[in-house]
Design a protein around this nucleic acid. Sequence first.
RNA 1: UGGGGCGUCGACAAGCGGUAAGUCACGGGUUUUUGGUACCCGCAUUCGCAGGUUCGAAUCCUGCCGCCCCAGCCA
Length: 583
Amino acid sequence: MSDSKTERPDSASAPRGAAAGESRQDSGPANFVRERIASDLAAGLNDGRVATRFPPEPNGYLHIGHAKSICLNFGMADEFAGTCNLRFDDTNPEAEDTEYVDAIREDVRWLGFDWQEREFFASDYFERLYQFAIELIKAGKAYVCSLPADKVREYRGNFYQPGKDSPDRGRSIEENLELFARMRAGEFADGQYTLRAKIDMQSANLNLRDPPIYRIKRVDHHRTGNAWPIYPMYDFAHGLSDALEGITHSICTLEFEDHRPLYDWFLDNLEVPARPQQIEFARLNLTYTVMSKRKLAQLVRERLVDGWNDPRMPTLCGMRRRGYTPEAIRAFVERIGVAKRDGVVDVSLLEHAVREDLNARCPRLMGVLRPLKLTIENFPAGRSEMIEAPLFPDEPERGNRTLRLTRTVYVERDDFREEAPRKWFRLAPGKEVRLRYACLVTCTDVVRDADGNVVELLCRWDPESLGGKSPDGRKVKGTLHWVSADHAIDAEIRLYDRLFNVENPAAEGHDFHEFINPDALEVITDAKLEPRLGEMSPGEHVQFERLGYFCADQPHEGMTVFNRTIGLRDSWAKLEKKLKADS
RNA sequence: UGGGGCGUCGACAAGCGGUAAGUCACGGGUUUUUGGUACCCGCAUUCGCAGGUUCGAAUCCUGCCGCCCCAGCCA
């Protein structure tokens, strides 16, 4: 436990921000949660302690939306020298499973956060929560209700109609105690009884109309097995778990805003060891994807993707396989900020964050996705020129690898056009281009197959240009990536794109299925890569020059596999589009 | 016909009565053996609308309008 009563975030980070006086760059943009915590601290609340928690329900995998919550909760704890617990909110055994518990742990750790020994489960508190319920009954503030689900709904009323009291509302404390004990003992069938908080059936807030707090569910729990035939509801369990853990700031999403009076009611009416407060912020929405667990689970179940970790998924494990880095995700989350207005963040912000991170860390190598043979006619057949090329062109001191220039190489099919459009400075009949680090070649002829398709380019090189230099200073604007036909390795490349082709696939009045992008995955099985790429291990990041950032995956049928994380910005594509539009 | 929130550039988002930060996107340019990167420039006379208070309002008041959430024995 760190004792940091007087430690302010500013002073804590001051030594790092040497530049401008009071700047607090490293804590991210200002936000109301940080402000609240700071003012609570200033007011001397909670003995200067800050304790948060990240409370996932283990019924699905974590996604980028959770990352926002994780970064916020762990971030606030870090910043204020506090703690952040990992708590599994496992009060509904029907949907939950240890598979998810394990995956969640892995993802949080991967994102870069450490909850140390503070891993908890709401199910750890079942006995204590049960005692809290008894305390409520004894105070005349909870009762066992025999109304079936549909009747409860009916008695609850609606937005415009007040509710009606349950016929069991006046049940004696003794009888409530006995019935509740029998519920716990497993004497009743599912749904036969519920324990309800006795609050106010007239309340304008439906959550306060005697909400059920315990239901009978004779279902095995992934951790407590068959020890409990009754399980507490979220509203009851969550705030009390917070109190038991000494949480000071219970940060959750906007839809719980009108649960807050209920959250407070339990804390006010029970003898609790701490008094946490709930603070709500807007959950993350991203364009061109869906974020609800239900829809993600549906994509998996219906085999529209290859599982929770399919690189097209916005899940953390999917993004990891896609090649996203924790640093990129954290930078992204920092930039989008934290506020209460719900909106949709443009994916381009996320894409920018990955490019930025990958640009700084990736070695540059060459791979050809759609190979087109290029033969240098005036290059001797048996000759193999060794070329030292930098792995990090902007930082040559970080090392080289050797390239082999041979008479026949592969270039990208997209880099050749029989008819060069305006401003095209790649290959075309008669055009001279540079093969990166190798030499200048001029296309002299093309070879076609029986159907007239170009299957090979015939070129002549300028021997003086070895290394790619322009011997006489002549301008050669185009530089292409290439690999030696004699030395290249074969590889499978998976090209990923947005899972949906509209900004908001979850739009009302539509089924998201109609927006699934059929081209979100393209598999190329005949890519040619420079040999060094065959030595990378799964998870390694690399830039294929001029193409994008790729991440090595598990070999497939003995072949090297790379997943494309994100393409490079393509200003030619933009230019061409404009050119076409203009004409 | 109820309750709870929220409305600042195309998208996020600062702003907390003293005269609209930043990021992404977009447009233009410089450098470049990645049409990448980096760098430079431009991009809200206006803060949902209408009144009011004030020397002064995105910030305070009033009234409208719009959007989101709530009627699980889910979380």
